[in-house]
Amino acid sequence: MSEKAPIEATVEHQQDKQRFVIPVDGHEAVLEYRLNGQHIDFNRTFVPDELRGKGLAERLVRHGLKWAKAQDFEIEASCWYVRKFLK
């Protein structure tokens, strides 16, 4: 079994779509959110099978939370994965 190398792709913030994305080889790891005034709800993370186990979801969540804190948003997570980072 081959070692899974870390992926050095950049996190892209697609504000018009309310999501953060890491594109890799035609696939996308995604963190979606909903903005309502100063309130943000991180509602979905998705990593395709081809990209799992490489730490992409964690990178997306840490990036998204850092951005939301910098914007001084009131942060909530209806996504179970993001909730783990808010404890």
Rank of each mutant, 00 (worst) to 15 (best):
M1I: 13
M1D: 13
E3K: 14
E3F: 15
P6T: 14
I7D: 09
I7M: 05
V11D: 09
H13M: 08
Q15H: 14
D16P: 00
Q18Y: 14
V21L: 09
I22H: 07
P23C: 07
P23F: 06
G26S: 13
E28R: 06
E28S: 06
E28L: 01
E28D: 10
V30A: 08
L31G: 06
E32T: 12
R34H: 07
N36E: 14
G37Q: 12
Q38G: 11
Q38M: 14
Q38D: 15
Q38Y: 12
D41M: 04
D41Q: 06
T45V: 06
D49M: 02
D49L: 07
E50P: 03
E50A: 13
R52I: 00
G55E: 01
G55L: 00
G55P: 03
L56D: 05
A57E: 00
A57M: 00
R59C: 05
R59P: 01
V61Y: 03
R62L: 05
R62N: 07
H63S: 07
H63W: 05
H63K: 04
L65S: 00
L65C: 02
K66Q: 07
W67E: 07
W67Q: 06
Q71D: 03
F73Q: 09
E76M: 09
E76D: 12
A77F: 09
A77K: 07
S78G: 12
Y81V: 02
Y81K: 00
K84G: 10
K84H: 15
